[in-house]
Design a protein around this nucleic acid. Sequence first.
DNA 1: CAACAACACACAACCGGTTGTGCAATTTTT
DNA 2: AAAAATTGCACAACCGGTTGTGTGTTGTTG
Lengths: 346, 346
Amino acid sequence: MEENKHVTIYDIAEKLNLATSTISRALKDHHSISDKTIKKVKKAAKEMGFVPNTLAAGLRGNKTKTIGVLIPTVTQPFLSSLISGIEITAQKSDYSVIIMQSHDSYADEVNMAKSLYSNRVSGVICSLAMETRDTSHFEQFSNNNIPLVFVDRVPKDYNTFRVVIDNYSAGYKATKHLIEQGCLRIAHLTAGAEFGNLYNERRRGYMEALRDHNLPIIEELIVDLKSVTYEDGVKASNKLFDLKPIPDGIFASGDIIAVSAVQTAKKRGIKVPEDLAVIGFNNDPISEIIDPNLSTITHPAEKMGKAAAEIIIKNLKSLKESEVQEITFLNTEVLVRESSHRKDTK
Amino acid sequence: MEENKHVTIYDIAEKLNLATSTISRALKDHHSISDKTIKKVKKAAKEMGFVPNTLAAGLRGNKTKTIGVLIPTVTQPFLSSLISGIEITAQKSDYSVIIMQSHDSYADEVNMAKSLYSNRVSGVICSLAMETRDTSHFEQFSNNNIPLVFVDRVPKDYNTFRVVIDNYSAGYKATKHLIEQGCLRIAHLTAGAEFGNLYNERRRGYMEALRDHNLPIIEELIVDLKSVTYEDGVKASNKLFDLKPIPDGIFASGDIIAVSAVQTAKKRGIKVPEDLAVIGFNNDPISEIIDPNLSTITHPAEKMGKAAAEIIIKNLKSLKESEVQEITFLNTEVLVRESSHRKDTK
DNA sequence: CAACAACACACAACCGGTTGTGCAATTTTT
DNA sequence: AAAAATTGCACAACCGGTTGTGTGTTGTTG
């Protein structure tokens, strides 16, 4: 096992009898260096196996071409797709991506934010932990001109970039779709009622759609899950199916929950979509594999990741104080598949 | 927007009239610093909002407490769980995790390896791209004492750490299970036959199990998919179901494929598990949601991630040249669920 | 009480690129 | 041909912790 010490610009400088400053500039095609020298330097660099030390450059320039990603977990399809989008875009501009999982813990999120700051990331993309109420641990970024982008689960009142979907209108669209399929007694499976925005927005859309179509809002048809898991979905579904007239439609605020509803229904002899139309949310991979295929609301995870990464990269290239705090809305669509398909509406 | 410049140990030193070296040592409880001073320094550091600059430390010490992860994609359940395991373990020892996706492209993998090296990661965890044949781009790590761990998709002849499962015996176990369920005509859905180890090992186990139980190996029952996707799985399944006597068992080298087989079977009126017993591989989330539940082989993704990360962290704490290149085998188990359950074997 | 060991902290080099400034040589301008 | 502009490169400070070495002070020992 050889102990090749890293090749540095000093090594190149010595070999070519040039100054390190010349090497540094030559490697990035600085105009004050002649073409001859540039070629010579690049050739030597390649031959000697020179790999720039990112740390040194980052230390000097106080920027690292690194995007910090702070999310609850990487294993949810939505979030892993988000990461994928971030990584793809980052990669194109030669940025690295550091991932941290808060596991929905506020304490972890605080620590990790500090760690990202400590790593002098060029920007941060974050989807908040469930537990998080206070967001002051993000001020270290704002205060130091480090672009901060919240995605999907964003704080209500923090003045920075956001990349989101319009959960209200998505909820509205989903519900409206069920109404158009002839549903009159539409249930809603949601979660985290105590925590703001995201799910509540969808529910707001649900209720508004009912109102707009003169359907009553029935409290017992709105079930708030403790957690967004298959198991809790089954429990909630059974609760609904125990009602005197069971609902004839379900809008679930997540595909896993919708799937649990569909399967629980099947087990109880309820036919989907004939007796019960179901629509989920997210367009997780499972939604198109399950039988019957699940209608759902698209949630453009990868696009959102790309958008967030682009904000950071662009923001660094030309920081325009003026336009800070813009909000990016990405589109969602109703994806009609078997689980809610009763009639052909165009 | 304030422009808080980062607080450094120089700022603390100035405020307390101490040398930076004292600050640095006090912050890490160096024995040559008195308790009084340590307390004073830590207090001031906290008050001033000091956050150490990881880059400076990394530059000086030529180590960064960062683990580089180079994998085909983050969106596959197995790989996102792998990441999760890596991140959890890294986090405990205060390591960061940099993620890069090769998208199964050899060229990308080479570039990213270089980028990781450029970032002076403390260690690298990699699952090879499909395309990769030559692994010389990893020598920069080996040559510079940067621990390298291959996971799951590992090279055949590279002298370094590996964390894998025994694909051969897993394939054997899966097949044996089907045999025990009474299957006599067991098909095998596999992929990437041209590329070594992983899938081929499973197939080898499959064939050996057949032999050991005096069952014939029938070529037309072994289908090599072009890609591990649902669509290709459907195609391959239909191929099998077009045979004169259809197979009575399928061992699929991946859950997505197994699911496609189950659903294709159902659509053609083939009953699972009565007419056809199916077992998959990986224990992806979908396997326990699909109806009927899918029997599968567990693939301890998170554990593998943890194991890999531990190797890197431990290896750094006490680099033991001697024991380098060990191989870690993690256990797999046959998880019997509905899709293959015909009789109760204990 | 002299001699020596701890102890507590300061000094300064160092890691490896980056970049403002300076200077000599060459080219362009008048 | 002298003055001005441009070109091409060297010098050295700098980013912010880390760590080997040096020095003064206090404490212990015979």
